[in-house]
Nucleic acid binder design. Structure first.
Length: 222
DNA sequence: GCGACAG
DNA sequence: ATCTTGTCGC
């Protein structure tokens, strides 16, 4: 796929994003998505880790090895990571109630970041949690839970959210079948101790673990 | 036109 | 994203 085709696909799928959370949404299983890259090759490890929302324990993880077929282009991030991430999600035996992506959702120039793309193609609710913002924002207060709107082109596309006192904020935006308040609440619940959600941390670790040791997918359930 | 630009 | 251990601070 070319850059132009990728942009065209985003513009075509963006209208399909549902900015409303399903009735009675009460996720029991949140799935964290992240990709780790090898230093000396084009190999990557895409990880999908299912986390129990009540205990925040990992209940299952799937990692798939792949290669980078698409270069890193700001705005087209999903075309680099999503193909492998979808394969990882398929390996899970549990059904995700919500996907937690490492990157932006609606906070994207075409309102279709990785989290939106992942949500739309799977039909699952999803949210995006980025470490860097695409857009403008004022620094939120110092306390955990403090937030300010993330604005792009005059539109509120997400929030700069402080998940830990005096720690740099993360940038939350909706992916699909989700609203900002619910996404914010979810991210806070997933981040009781560290800056990033446990879902992202678990997926990050699973990914680099797979790149290091050749040992493949492990089910961490008892 | 120029720079900045999720991971 | 990746190169990387210990260390200062709450």
């Amino acid at each position: 796929m070319t850059v132009d085709e990728a942009v065209a696909l985003q513009e075509k799928l963006a209208p399909q994003v549902v900015r409303q959370t399903p009735e009675g949404f009460s996720p029991r299983v949140a799935v964290g998505l992240d990709v780790a890259y090898a230093t000396d090759s084009d190999q990557l490890a895409a990880a999908a880790v299912a986390v129990d929302m009540s205990t925040l324990d990992s209940v299952e993880e799937a990692v798939v090895l792949g290669t980078t077929d698409f270069p890193y282009v700001p705005g087209l991030f999903a075309f680099r990571e999503l193909p492998s991430l979808l394969r990882a999600i398929e390996q899970l035996t549990v059904t995700p109630d919500v996907l937690v992506c490492d990157g932006q959702g609606l906070a994207h120039p075409r309102r279709f970041g990785l989290a939106c793309h992942a949500g739309v193609v799977t039909g699952l609710p999803s949210i995006g949690v980025g470490k860097q913002a695409l857009g403008q924002y004022d620094m939120p207060g110092d306390d955990r839970g403090d937030w300010t709107p993330l604005v792009d082109d005059g539109e509120v596309v997400g929030r700069a959210l402080r998940t830990q006192r005096r720690v740099k904020p993360v940038f939350v935006s909706i992916g699909h079948r989700m609203d900002l308040d619910t996404a914010t609440d979810l991210v806070l619940r997933l981040s009781p101790r560290y800056r990033q959600p446990e879902t992202t941390r678990a997926a990050d670790q699973a990914g680099r673990r797979a790149l290091a040791g050749g040992v493949g997918v492990q089910d961490v359930a008892d």
